[in-house]
Design a binder for these strands. Structure first.
Length: 289
DNA sequence: CCCTATTCCTGTGCGC
DNA sequence: TGCGCACAGGAATAGG
């Protein structure tokens, strides 16, 4: 659920609150929170104790804290992860607890346990230093080196539905179900259309719309569709008031007034205007031709 | 290689 | 009142 804007809000909060602090103790309270750290929870915590937080970074929905050992704590929030500074009001879903030498704390809370931490080396890819487990993730639209036209070229070759491609983090990162629907609504394209059947101009419009809507959401402190995604102080953003498509089934399209529709797609919901974003006319079948 | 379906997880809300 | 189930969905992985 947290997508690029929400993750960036969290990264900024961490940058403001934990830089320079030294980890006195860290405990993994649920094994799933460290499952991507293949050497195990005890290896993760042992290597972190005594290190100092030296910086923060983000690509797409991954964020990381660089530490004085030269490695990075890579954090993915998954569906419901929170990075909270200070005391945790309800420790039911507290998964990783960190105490700094000055007595302050940083806690990873995650109800659905899709998120987690790992400790990894940094590598240089295409001129950018990023953690090795994030190396396969494409640049996101807020990256200064994001190559929009290059992504358009990739999308022109994809014989797959455009929404599926927008959600593929190796094509363009940071976009999840909410902002994919918002970008497609703004560009007036149905997500079930084939990426390869769209023009370069249409694909560029979709990417530009995604960039605009995520920039707007970041300015509002992120979207909070429910109370699960919050900043480092446990507060929600306000962008949900600006959503034009996501969650608006049966409500009037804000452009043409037609009732918005919901389709099941990829095990999730897609919200769109049937008039502004008509479905592709012909349903393709595997045996056609 | 390219593409798609499955899997992991838990709290909430709704119908019966 | 309580039970069962659909739903929320990011991303790795298995499979076609």
């Amino acid at each position: 659920m947290p997508e690029l804007p929400e993750v960036e809000v969290v990264r900024r909060g961490l940058d403001a609150h934990v830089l320079g602090r030294t980890i006195a103790d860290v405990q993994v309270l649920h094994p799933r929170a460290a499952r991507r750290h293949l050497a195990g929870s005890l290896d993760l915590t042992a290597r972190l104790r005594g290190t100092q937080i030296t910086g923060t970074g983000r690509r797409g929905k991954y964020l990381w804290l660089t530490v004085s050992s030269g490695e990075a704590i890579v954090v993915h929030l998954g569906m419901s992860g929170q990075m909270l500074i200070g005391a945790v009001p309800n420790p039911t879903h507290l998964r990783i607890a960190t105490t700094f030498a000055d007595g302050s704390s940083m806690n990873f809370v995650d109800q659905r346990t899709f998120g987690g931490w790992m400790l990894a080396d940094l590598v240089t890819i295409d001129g950018s230093e990023i953690p090795e487990p994030v190396a396969h993730i494409a640049r996101d639209p807020l990256d200064p080196a994001f190559d929009r036209d290059g992504v358009v070229t990739v999308l022109r070759r994809k014989h797959s539905e455009i929404k599926r491609q927008l959600l593929d983090q190796t094509v363009v990162s940071g976009i999840g179900n909410i902002y994919a629907d918002e970008a497609l609504w703004r560009a007036k394209v149905n997500g079930a259309r084939l990426s390869s059947a769209l023009t370069r101009r249409q694909l560029a419009e979709i990417l530009d719309a995604a960039t605009e809507v995520m920039t707007g959401a970041l300015g509002q402190g992120g979207t909070s569709f429910d109370s699960l995604y919050v900043n480092v102080n446990g507060e929600s953003g306000y962008f949900d008031r600006s959503l034009e498509a996501y969650g608006r089934v049966d409500e009037p399209c804000r452009r043409c007034g037609a009732p918005m529709q919901r389709d099941k797609f990829m095990n999730r919901s897609s919200f769109y205007c049937p008039k502004c974003q008509p479905r592709p006319r012909v349903r393709r079948t595997a045996s056609a031709g």
